[in-house]
Design a protein around this nucleic acid. Structure first.
Length: 150
DNA sequence: GCCAACGTTGGC
DNA sequence: GCCAACGTTGGC
């Protein structure tokens, strides 16, 4: 059982989109470190903080949970997809994904600015420099701390 | 295997 | 739109 943080650009896919869909294949991850965690460490039922990035107010906006095992991301073979990967072979797909399910929206956005002000979260990956991974594990203590800010 | 060039992420 | 901090690619 691992807690996660997953990022999404709200203009691309927001927490409201997930709320409407209920469950959604979490596609487009094209980073080996992220791929390995999706494949090896994630488990069905794991919970995740849903984070909005590259937007006016970056921050945590909701909760989701992992809803499937890992399987090949179909968008890697789609010539017209944004994350098409011509070098990925259908017999040994390079990129995997999992379905994620909507749990709930937070009552308010817990902003990145706020999270940065928490001394106890200074060793959370979110607050470390050059943090560009779109998915990473969150310590249980950090998880509780973050949700207590809600 | 090194490393420069290039591409991407994401806050600001 | 800028730029820091990566990750990836490809020549050698």
């Amino acid at each position: 059982m691992t807690y996660w943080l997953i990022k999404s650009e709200p203009t691309d896919y927001s927490i409201d989109d997930l709320a409407k869909a209920g469950t959604e294949p979490w596609d487009g991850i094209r980073n080996y470190q992220a791929r390995n965690m999706i494949r090896d460490t994630m488990a069905i039922g794991d919970q995740a903080l849903f984070y909005h990035s590259s937007c006016k107010v970056p921050g945590i906006v909701g909760l989701a949970k992992i809803a499937s095992d890992a399987y090949p991301d179909p968008t890697q073979f789609d010539r017209n997809a944004r994350h098409y990967d011509p070098k990925s072979d259908k017999n040994t797909p390079r990129w995997l994904l999992r379905d994620i399910a909507f749990v709930r929206k937070l009552s308010r956005i817990i902003t990145l600015q706020e999270l940065k002000q928490q001394d106890s979260l200074s060793d959370c990956r979110l607050n470390q420099r050059g943090n560009r991974l779109s998915v990473f594990p969150v310590e249980p203590a950090h998880w509780r701390l973050i949700l207590n800010l809600e």
